[in-house]
């Protein structure tokens, strides 16, 4: 309470200073036509930091986000350096060890074919990390672009884009992916990522559109329009930051969802195909044996949980960093605002 008080009084003092401040201006710089282009004008004040730097500082101050980032980096290291740590290849069976529990030789044990589970897990982690993050970023990006444009421009742009969204929504995504993915086999996993992203953005886009429509009428957007700020700049500077809470939450949920839908598709033989593996296929294969041979399931499951958890931590930190009214990540103690964070979701 004491700390809060100080913040309040600081504000009060800003206004108290007014008569004094005006006098100082007259003395030092004079009214502005005089100071116009005056090179001798004292730059006693450091230039204020921009929004990005402020948000970055707040992000760095958030312990959860840092922890999440560290975990993510460690996961990437494990996924891409892991294969070099073990002599086993993920596809090559070791016929001397079938369904062996974890040991010094096979760190995570082996499966029914004698394949090394550690090698498989790190290989699967590679796939899943990339697929999860890329799908989330691509689909949320596409959703915000389409949604914000539809909402901001209105009229025919809106009608056309909404029609497109509705059209995409009624496509049976699973079928379409199933039909297309065999043809894309040659282009590898990136085509698969694109497919997953393309069928995952529509509902988000509709929500963004309606949020944009209400934001478009807000006075700060009208003010920006009257200042001559271009429409895409307004979307970038005003609309998207104000829907960022929703975007970030949506993206973090998509990460987990993408890994799981990749697993579902792979289970039916699309997407990642044997002998290649992903966390999803490992989980699908190991789920049935989990009570008897837990190492087939729990290592992959644990890494997936850790991955989603880390992404959520980073997302939470990012959301708080972008939302100045959030309590977390604050550099200065100040007024407690309890409602606004909830309402922006």
């Amino acid at each position: 309470m004491k700390v809060r008080d100080q913040g309040e009084h600081n504000q009060g003092r800003g206004e108290l200073r007014e008569p004094d401040g005006t006098r100082r201006r007259d003395r030092e710089t004079g009214p502005w036509p005089a100071s116009d282009g005056d090179p001798a004008q004292p730059t006693d004040q450091r230039a204020p930091a921009g929004r990005l730097r402020l948000a970055a500082a707040r992000l760095a101050a958030s312990r959860g986000a840092l922890l999440g980032l560290i975990v993510l980096v460690l996961l990437f290291l494990l996924a891409f350096l892991g294969p070099y740590l073990t002599p086993w290849h993920y596809a090559t069976p070791d016929y001397t060890a079938l369904r062996q529990p974890p040991s010094v030789q096979h760190w995570f044990g082996t499966n029914g074919l004698g394949q090394d589970v550690f090698a498989q897990t790190v290989r699967g982690l590679q796939k899943s990390l990339v697929i999860g993050l890329l799908v989330a970023v691509l689909s949320t990006g596409l959703a915000s672009l389409v949604g914000a444009c539809a909402g901001y421009f209105g009229g025919w742009t809106d009608r056309l884009l909404t029609f497109l969204v509705d059209l995409m929504l009624i496509f049976p995504a699973f079928l379409v992916i199933a039909v297309i993915s065999p043809r894309l086999r040659g282009s590898g996993w990136i085509a698969f990522v694109l497919l997953l992203a393309v069928f995952n953005w529509m509902i988000t886009a509709r929500v963004i559109r309606s949020m944009t429509i209400s934001l478009r009428e807000r006075e700060f957007v009208v003010a920006a329009r009257f200042m001559g700020v271009g429409p895409f700049r307004i979307i970038w500077r005003h609309i998207l930051p104000n829907v960022s809470s929703f975007l970030i939450i949506d993206a973090t949920i998509t990460v987990g969802g993408a890994v799981m839908s990749e697993a579902a598709l792979s289970y039916f033989g699309f997407g990642v195909r044997p002998p290649d593996v992903s966390l999803g296929t490992l989980l699908a294969a190991g789920a049935g044996d989990a009570p008897v041979f837990p190492w087939l399931f729990y290592f992959a499951a644990g890494l997936l949980v850790l991955f989603v958890l880390a992404v959520n931590l980073v997302g939470d930190g990012l959301r708080d960093a972008l939302d100045p009214t959030a309590t977390a990540g604050r550099r200065r103690p100040r007024k407690t605002v309890t409602t606004s964070r909830r309402s922006t979701r």
Partner: peptide, 23 residues
């Protein structure tokens, strides 16, 4: 309404610079 006409997600420095950048 000064509460509605300032973008809540922007530090006031950026708010003030906006018309300049627009020009």
């Amino acid at each position: 309404d000064p509460a509605a006409s300032l973008d809540p997600r922007m530090p006031v420095g950026d708010v003030i610079a906006e018309p300049l950048l627009a020009q």
